[in-house]
Design a protein around this nucleic acid. Structure first.
Lengths: 204, 204
DNA sequence: CGAGAATCACAGACCGGTCGGTATGTAGGT
DNA sequence: ACCTACATACCGACCGGTCTGTGATTCTCG
């Protein structure tokens, strides 16, 4: 058995995922459910259908696993934002699209983003600063769109762009606290409303 | 020694606070600094200058102490919001004042609000639902202001008030993740900007 | 081409340390 | 005598991480 286990050998779910993928998937679910500290390595590996030996073969520590969960969603969102920022068209439209999109990717990965802000402080200082650095460049990319609109006269100039971005992302990052997939509004609908409110708040 | 200890008997800070108050103050600081789970009861009571016996005399568990921290700031913010909501004047002005005020009280109690959203899930389910209930009535009081403005024609009606309120409080609750008292802007300045953006986003 | 060596990918028992909570004791007030 | 308000010693559970073992695969070299 080089990579996949034989079908239907494990517990409930036995998709042919690799062992590291099974571990990150189980970690995402359990960390979001009980929190990072309340989830023991033992129950984590049992949920993933592997053993501790397997986990410590691929990850150096429990923190490392948390970090891997962070990286996945953070790099994905950064890539998407860059694509919207570099696109053609008026800045108001690009900002609206980017703002709505980050809501959609956030609700599509609600567990990850919930863990993100709940457990960042559990990471080693080195890992924390690495995550913060990535988060910061993400913030700055978004801010550059706001500044571009302000220069062009499309947006108001009496509120610091940093405040605008911090306010918006604060709202997005808090989605994990209240949004439920089985609620009235889809992620796309919430994204539209959020983006509409953002653009309205920036009108001259 | 019925209530106060003799002056200058403990560690660094020996204000004549009662033992429960010393414990909640130490808990607020340590939970915000290292997180709830990483803070042991032993270091907590040492920071408060008391012993475990004292702590378990006033609180039934470590969770109970966390709950007490929650209650203090939550009830305070609810009282203040009610005062603004019940005041006189146009709804736009009352909403602006309430929106700016919640930012100020949040940055004035940044540790508490940080703990709040980071460690809510560590509470027992019963306690969690009690906190959520209070949080919900707070949300609804704020929402009633938005709805009042919409009825009067002062605010737009094409975005659900719940979305507006969730977005705004999301941003406020996330202040603990980025606001620093030694930064460029004071809490009052951030509050003004936040409230300005909120009101602008609601214009018809 | 084949056999032994080295490596990989885990398995699972085990350990030192820590932690929340309790049991028991006691000084002072009433 | 009794209650309040603590102090202190202690316990059993648990947890992250390590260590050794092992079957399968790959590499090496004659």
């Amino acid at each position: 058995m080089t990579k996949p286990v034989e079908p239907d050998a494990g517990a409930a779910e036995t998709a042919p995922l690799s062992v590291p993928d099974r571990l990150t998937a189980a970690a995402t679910r359990l960390f979001a459910e009980h929190g990072f500290e309340r989830t023991s390595v033992q129950e984590l590996v049992e949920a993933a259908g592997v053993t501790k030996g397997a986990m410590y073969h691929y990850f150096t520590s429990k923190d490392d696993l948390l970090f891997a969960v962070y990286e996945r969603v953070l790099s994905m969102q950064t890539r998407r934002l860059a694509a919207f920022a570099e696109a053609e068209g008026p800045v108001a439209r690009r900002l609206h699209q980017a703002a709505a999109d980050v809501v959609i990717t956030t609700v599509d990965n609600l567990d990850d983003t919930l863990i993100f802000f709940r457990s960042l402080h559990m990471l080693s200082p080195a890992r924390q600063s690495q995550v913060r650095k990535e988060r910061r460049s993400y913030h700055e990319l978004f801010r550059s769109l706001v500044e571009e609109g302000a220069r062009e006269g499309a947006f108001r100039t009496d509120v610091p762009p940093d405040i605008v971005v911090s306010q918006y992302f604060g709202a997005v990052h808090h989605l994990g606290m209240w949004y439920h997939a089985d609620g009235e509004l889809s992620g796309a609908q919430v994204g539209e409303h959020f983006a509409d409110l953002l653009l309205a708040s920036l009108r001259t």
